[in-house]
C-alpha cells in the first residue's frame, strides 16, 4: 500500500544533495570516485559561493542525467584517445591525465589522490615563505594534507614539452587557499616526468610561490 505522504514526497521537487558523502551515497560509490568523476568526466557538482570550506552540492536529476549519458564503466580512469591520433597527442593526453591526479589531490587537500602521479623517488625543490624546500616528495604530501581543501584552485597548463621518455609540464596555479597556502595564493610549478613501463610519473616538482 502506498501511503499519501510517500506520493507527496515523490512529486516534490528533489532537494539537492548537500555534501560529498550524500552525493557518493546517491551514486553508490566512494567520495573519492565522485571527485574523480567531477574532475575527469564532468559530473555536475555545484559549489556554494563565499564558503571557505569545500562546500558542494548536487541536484539528483542532474546526476541522473549525467549517469544516463555516461557510457564508460565506473572504473575507466580517463578518456581513451582514438588510436589514429598522432603520437604526440597520445603522450600529451597521458601526461595530462597524470597531472590531474596532482590537481585533484591539491583541490581536495588529500595527498592520497595525487600519490599515483608521482614516482616513489620523486623530489621537490623551491622556496615557500622564505624557507627552502629540497627533498622527498613526502614534503608535498604533508603540505597538501595539512593545507586542507582548496576548492577555488584554477590550474592552467602553460606548457607541455615531451622529449621521448621525459617531459616537462609548467603549471600556473591561481586561487590556492587553505591552512598553509593562505588566501588566493599563486604558485608556478614545473614538473619533470619520466615514462616508466609505459606510464608517465612525476619525478620532480620545482615551484615558485608568488607573494601577493
Amino acid at each position: 500500500m502506498v501511503s499519501g505522504s510517500h506520493t507527496v514526497a515523490r512529486n516534490r521537487p528533489q532537494r539537492p544533495l548537500e555534501s560529498w558523502k550524500q552525493i557518493a551515497a546517491y551514486l553508490d560509490c566512494s567520495e573519492r570516485t565522485v571527485r574523480r568523476w567531477e574532475a575527469r568526466e564532468g559530473l555536475p557538482i555545484h559549489r556554494r559561493e563565499h564558503h571557505k570550506q569545500d562546500k558542494v552540492f548536487a541536484y539528483p536529476h542532474e546526476l541522473d542525467s549525467w549517469r544516463r549519458g555516461r557510457t564508460r564503466t565506473p572504473s575507466t580512469p580517463a578518456p581513451t584517445p582514438e588510436p589514429q591520433i598522432h603520437g604526440y597527442l597520445l603522450e600529451h593526453a597521458a601526461i595530462t591525465a597524470t597531472m590531474h591526479y596532482y590537481i585533484e589531490g591539491a583541490r581536495a587537500g588529500d595527498s592520497s589522490l595525487m600519490r599515483p602521479a608521482f614516482h616513489p623517488a620523486a623530489t621537490i625543490s623551491g622556496y615557500c615563505q622564505g624557507i627552502e624546500y629540497i627533498g622527498s616528495i613526502q614534503l608535498v604530501f604533508d603540505w597538501i594534507d595539512g593545507n586542507g581543501s582548496a576548492p577555488d584552485l584554477k590550474p592552467r597548463f602553460a606548457r607541455i614539452e615531451i622529449i621521448e621518455s621525459i617531459a616537462l609540464v609548467h603549471l600556473e596555479v591561481h586561487g590556492w587557499s587553505g591552512r598553509n597556502a593562505g588566501a588566493n595564493a599563486h604558485y608556478s610549478d614545473v614538473f619533470t616526468l619520466l615514462k616508466i613501463d609505459g606510464e608517465w610519473k612525476i619525478t620532480h616538482k620545482l615551484f615558485h610561490s608568488h607573494v601577493s
Partner: peptide, 15 residues
C-alpha cells in the same frame, strides 16, 4: 632537461 633554483649561492641545478 635541467631544473634550477636560485639560491643564496647562485643558480643551482636541482634536477
Amino acid at each position: 632537461l635541467f631544473t634550477l633554483l636560485k639560491t643564496e649561492n647562485g643558480w643551482k641545478i636541482v634536477q
